[in-house]
Design a protein around this nucleic acid. Structure first.
Lengths: 187, 187
DNA sequence: ACACTCATGTAAGCTGTTACATGATTAA
DNA sequence: TTAATCATGTAACAGCTTACATGAGTGT
């Protein structure tokens, strides 16, 4: 589960980059994923290099500090694939899913669709659990619990909606399952 | 930033409970918040007790193991308030917001509204940043980046929508007199 | 007989952050 | 000259998880 390690490896699979580049790129998605600190990023890069999962080339900067450009190696792609192939835990947080989503380019289309479908099942389960929680003990719930429940439902509904549209776009055939009403996510 | 510590304290502010109760309750919201492991929960409870932020009473179980019921102490409410009063960081993850939302019962209405407004501003900023990222370099983006961007936009839009409805509901009813006395509430 | 829920706790370890340290280049 | 961006790195530590350990009752 050292997810950052594989996340970095995955980014290098998309494109050869320096540690600094990785920081900048992940900052764009920091709301979902959070960007790694230098204290974790650089040691990870060195470890990946020592294990021969990546290669490194020093590119002297033109009026800038020299940059260490890392590229994924053959062993690295295999290790990455093995990591991506194992499904996410059912209680995986949004962050873990978003991390894998960002690596979609390294995933064969069929597997990508499988991942999204699996996520759909898990989010639907959490959605159902929240609805059930709302039904069983609404009486004894305080303001915080009620607000959080609503918030969770809104988020889950939105995610289900997005997953459905994304799946429709990515796959030619229509979904056999009943589509979720997505009126709540319009704005 | 030992958020779990204050989260536990906050739950005890809502209602006196045992460690086990806290685990069960937070499991209901585990998708958003994640439920603390025993390895963190029980040591936290002991620490809170030793610092006199909570009190403890052993209730012998009837045909069940005895339970240790923790209640918040006066010092605890003060410490909790001080923690809640400081605003969330602008890059605070969804999880951090949901944690505070669950403690809404301990927050005076005016402050709760201020928190939601502040969150709205931050989510709107991230939403705008994603849109801008989409505009500036759509060309050079791979599948993963495009999907993650869409996903982030869908989530941010949904959250903004929920925040707006929640704010409308919360600010509608309670204001017979002037509820606003400090300028920090407005945003 | 076996496994599960209720209920507590500890020890070792992993993952990641904070804060520091370096140094060159460019803009106010 | 002061600060900011680019670019790399380390050491100390915080925070949390995993896995283990205990034990009574309850269900199959």
């Amino acid at each position: 589960m050292p997810s950052l390690r594989y996340f970095v490896l995955g980014l290098l699979a998309q494109k050869s980059m320096s540690g600094y580049d990785i920081k900048c790129l992940s900052k764009s998605f920091s709301w979902l994923i959070g960007s790694p600190s230098t204290g974790s990023l650089y040691p990870i890069l060195r470890a990946l290099l020592e294990e021969n999962l990546v290669t490194m080339e020093v590119v002297p900067g033109l009026g800038k500090p020299p940059r260490k450009i890392y590229s994924i190696a053959e062993t690295g792609t295999q290790v990455l694939q093995a990591w991506i192939d194992q499904p996410l835990a059912s209680d995986a947080p949004l962050k873990a899913f978003a991390m894998r989503l960002l690596l979609a380019g390294s995933v064969p289309p069929a597997r990508l669709i499988a991942h999204l479908k699996q996520r759909r099942v898990q989010v639907a389960a959490h959605h159902a659990a929240l609805i059930q929680a709302a039904g069983t003990h609404v009486e004894g719930m305080d303001l915080g619990q009620r607000l959080t429940l609503e918030y969770g439902l809104a988020m889950a509904t939105a995610e289900l909606g997005w997953l459905d549209t994304a799946l429709n776009r990515l796959s030619a055939k229509p979904l056999p399952e009943k589509a979720v009403q997505s009126g709540t996510l319009t704005n």
